[in-house]
Every structure is written in structure tokens, then in C-alpha cells.
Amino acid sequence: MGRYVRFMSLWEYANPVKFIRTTDVVLPWVSVLAVLCLVVGLIWGFFFTPEDYRQGSTVKIIYLHVPAALMAINAWMMMLVASLIWIIRRHHVSALAARAAAPVGAVMTLIALATGALWGQPMWGTWWAWDPRLTSFLILFLFYLGYMALWSAIEDDDTAADLTSILCLVGSVFAVLSRYAVNFWNQGLHQGASLSLDKEENVADVFYFPLLVCIAGFVLLFIALVFLRTQTEIRARRTRALIAREQQG
């Protein structure tokens, strides 16, 4: 039970409390902003943008597909950073935030895959092609599944945090390797970047601005969800600690 006692010590206890207090203030604002951006961006995109001359009305899927795909990758990045912070600074909130972000990232990956398949059907004539980007996302989804499964399989909190952090680091390296391997393996059907700084490749302005609003909405939604879920993880752990202490004496 030593680790629970350690969890109760002042420094480690103060930080989660401060985190909950701060996020309690911030969370409503972020949530409202997220909903606002999503509603405005999606309505703007869905009702008030023209059709693309080649893709017809399917271009409207971009407002979901691209932000979800971005967040799928960024969520993993955030987990990587949080894992590093946990390994180096032993900051409990950081480990729990990584855990909280994983399901959100997995759902974003799923959205990107599903909308991609629905978009691919009319455009490429098939639901699924072993296109490098689609394949990479499928592999990323597997990484998310493994990461979440490892978290829930280990009972001891600190061990779970340590092991998942290392898995996240190793997984990141292999995810990048897979990306290049998959590129090597099959040249794809996918269109180029929709948001690169290179203007030539970019989508047209009419689609660009509502897309930016939608991306902002997805980012804010992600932040709000991670805050909320991290709070939940902190509370769940504190509950476990208190119950353990009750049983002890």
C-alpha cells in the first residue's frame, strides 16, 4: 500500500487538486467555444459552401474528415509529450492526461477512417483501398487499441503509467516507421495535403475558412474532453486511494 500513501503526500496531492480547480473554471468556457465553433463551422460548411467542380457535394465531408484526421495524429503527439513528462518529472496528472486522451484519439481516428471510406466510395469507386494514408490510419488505430488495452490490463497505477509511457514512446517510433514503410509499399490514391503552406496544393478559399473554424472546433472539443476525462481519472484514483486507506485501518 506504500504507493497510495505516497500519492497522499502534499506535493503530489496538491497538483491534482490544483488541476481540478483550474480546469473547473476553464472547462465551461472551452466547451461553449467548442460547441460554438463546431456549430458555426459545420453549418457554414454544410449549407453555405458551393460544390467542388470535380468532387460535387462530397467535398462537404472535408469539414469532418480533415479535422478528425488532424486530431487523430495530434492526440497521439499529446500523449507522447505527456508520457515524456511523466517519465522525466513523475507528474501524475500528466500520465492520467495521456490515458484520458487515448479514447478521444481513437474515436477521431475512427471518424477519419469512416468518413474517408464514405468519401472514397463515390470518388475512388471503392470503400477501402490500401492507400498509404488509409493504411497508416488503420495502423494508428491499432496502436490506440493496444495502448488503451495495456492501461486497463494493469492494476497498479504507477506501473501502468510507466509501462504505457514506454509503449507510447516505442509505438511512436514504429508508427513513423510504418508510415514510411506503407508509403514505400504502395503509392496511393489520396489527394495531397489540403492545408500545407504551399498555396498550389491547398483547397480553395471558399472551403478553407469554414474548414479552419471546424478545425478550431475539433481542437477545442479535444481539449475540453481531455480536461473532463483527466478530472475523472484523478477522482477515480483518489477514490481508490481513500477506499484502500479505509480498508487498511
Binding site: F46, T58, V107
Partner: peptide
């Protein structure tokens, strides 16, 4: 808006994404 022949794809991707 008139979604033309792709209405199914567009609407179902919105439904799936928002549902998730």
C-alpha cells in the same frame, strides 16, 4: 442544399461522425 447524387455519402458521413 441540393446534394445531388452524392447525398447518401455526405449525409451518412455527417451522421457517423456526429454520432461518434
Amino acid at each position: 442544399p441540393d446534394l445531388g447524387k452524392y447525398a447518401g455519402a455526405v449525409l451518412s458521413s455527417y451522421a457517423v461522425a456526429l454520432g461518434l
